[in-house]
């Protein structure tokens, strides 16, 4: 840490310097290096111990047969990678992760966009709707899982009892038991929680669309739909790419709702990569395989981020 005694030295130094050479922050002196280090040290220390070290260690574990936190692990080469490639559930969970991302982008991103357009078009009451529609985002995804598990409960849940009381019992479904529906049902819960933030971002983006463009379109006699296509959406382009990438990253991290509502079942029908990592690491104690899954997940996350940053950069120029 740089001590306070550094101050007079610096001042003295400056006094000896030729008057024309005004010091700027561009000057890479040892002292500012020390200051920078002092300012960075707390962040670096925490980040190195609790993020960087584990990232490196994950790669290490993936080459061992670690069978638990207390066991001795041996180097097994690419064994875990081979096992992962031969495990059908790995591939299924990966596929379902993509499906999950797609659902989340469409449901949460789409709902966020539509509601943002609707709310922004209002002359009065914007704040009321913006506030009310944002409420689900304040609820923890785990709690959302508890809430929606009860909504979907086949015998007492809101959804099926609602359908029954509207004489629509034939539409009642096993929302969490039907293997084709379950991932979608859980994603609806997740997206219900997620869309609020995207909506706010779109509303902010809409405020930045140049109003004169609308006036110009108005003069050209454009319909509301044409204005949306030719003015609004192009104006939102940057926010749009940002929201899509944010939604994909959030989707990739999806865990709590699946864990709480179905625990990956029935028969792996809702197993995604994060729940499978948890199952392997903390239930089956198969750390080697879990580490391979972790690496796959990181690669996915990096790919998504890089791709969208490129896209964004290209869109900006």
């Amino acid at each position: 840490m740089a001590s306070k005694s550094a101050i007079p030295e610096r001042v003295g130094e400056a006094a000896h310097a030729p008057p024309t050479a005004v010091r700027t922050e561009d000057d890479p002196t040892r002292d500012s290096y020390g200051t920078a280090f002092a300012l960075l040290a707390p962040a670096i220390a925490l980040y190195a111990v609790f993020s960087l070290l584990p990232i490196v260690a994950t790669v290490g574990i993936s080459f061992t047969n670690s069978g638990g936190f207390n066991t001795e692990a041996q180097f097994v080469g690419l064994d875990n990678y081979v096992r992962a490639s031969e495990d059908p559930i790995v591939w299924q969970s990966l596929l379902r992760t993509f499906l999950w991302l797609f659902y989340h982008v469409v449901l949460a991103g789409g709902l966020g966009l539509v509601l943002a357009l609707a709310v922004s078009s209002l002359a009065r009451g914007k704040v009321f709707f913006r506030t009310t529609l944002f409420l689900p985002h304040l609820v923890s995804l785990a709690v959302v899982g508890v809430i929606w598990a009860n909504i979907y409960d086949p015998f007492y849940g809101l959804l099926n009892t609602l359908l029954a009381s509207l004489n629509l019992s034939h539409l009642a479904q096993g929302w969490l038991s039907d293997p084709f529906l379950v991932l979608f049902s859980v994603n609806v819960a997740s997206s219900w929680q997620g869309f609020g933030l995207y909506m706010l971002l779109f509303i902010a983006g809409l405020q930045n669309v140049d109003p004169t463009l609308y006036d110009a379109a108005e003069v050209d006699g454009a319909s509301a739909w044409q204005k949306l296509i030719h003015v609004t959406l192009p104006g939102l382009r940057e926010v749009l790419t940002f929201v899509v990438s944010l939604a994909m990253i959030n989707g990739l991290k999806g865990f709590a709702t699946v864990f709480v509502m179905t625990n990956g079942g029935p028969f792996y029908a809702s197993e995604i990569i994060t729940t499978y990592i948890y199952r392997m690491a903390f239930q089956a104690q198969d750390h080697g395989l879990a580490a391979v899954l972790c690496i796959m997940m990181s690669v996915l996350a990096i790919t998504i981020t890089v791709t969208f940053n490129r896209w964004r950069a290209r869109g900006a120029t």
């Binding site: 086949p154 015998f155 079942g265 029935p266």
Partner: peptide, 11 residues
């Protein structure tokens, strides 16, 4: 009922 797959034991 196949919907029993979404129930836990207590339910």
């Amino acid at each position: 009922n196949p919907q029993m797959t979404s129930l836990d034991q207590d339910a």
